[in-house]
Amino acid sequence: MSCSECGSPTIDFSLPERYRASLSTDAAVANCCTRCLTVEPVTDADTDASTPEFGRISDAVPTDQEQAIPLLLALELADSLATNRDAIESLLRDVERAGADPLLAIDRLARDPDLEPRVDLERRSHQIEQLLYYSNN
């Protein structure tokens, strides 16, 4: 499949039920663009999402699904931190609980010359750090 935003290739992955609300969908599969990092639900029943190759996106994306999926979903929501604050914080906490450092991954994604993220990751990384570690929650 191709990304609806930039036309680049995408990778499909199974979307656990607990994360479907992040994309406002009931779809069991989503895809992520290998260039702009846009994540979208997939409704094509013939999609094979059994073994997603997150490394096709970037070396900065964890290969473990428990780490990669919430990270990619958080980045999808990062264009509106104010609106999506709770969801982003929850998703990135899941990344941490799964054993990855979400801020390091975001920093590495921001510096990857092969990516052109839809969201300005350099600008958002500082705001996300504040959200995770300096919020009043």
Rank of each mutant, 00 (worst) to 15 (best):
I57V: 14
L72P: 00
A45M: 12
D64P: 01
L75Y: 03
A60N: 10
P62A: 01
I57T: 03
I57S: 01
S80C: 14
E76C: 08
A49V: 06
R56W: 12
S50G: 09
A74R: 00
D79F: 15
E66H: 11
E66F: 03
T47P: 06
L81H: 10
D59P: 04
A78Y: 08
S50Q: 11
G55F: 06
A78P: 01
E53Q: 15
D59H: 09
P62S: 01
T63R: 13
T51P: 04
P52C: 06
A60E: 05
T63C: 09
S50P: 07
V61L: 00
E66D: 11
I57D: 02
A60I: 04
A78N: 06
L72V: 04
T47N: 12
P62E: 02
Q67C: 02
F54L: 09
T63H: 12
S58P: 09
E76G: 08
L71F: 13
L71A: 06
Q67D: 01
L81A: 13
G55K: 08
S80F: 09
P70D: 03
S58G: 01
L72Q: 03
S80P: 10
E53L: 13
L81I: 14
S50C: 08
T51M: 11
L73S: 06
A68I: 01
A45Y: 11
P52R: 05
D48G: 05
P52I: 07
T47M: 13
G55P: 01
P70S: 09
Q67V: 02
L81T: 12
D64Q: 03
D46G: 13
E53N: 15
L77M: 14
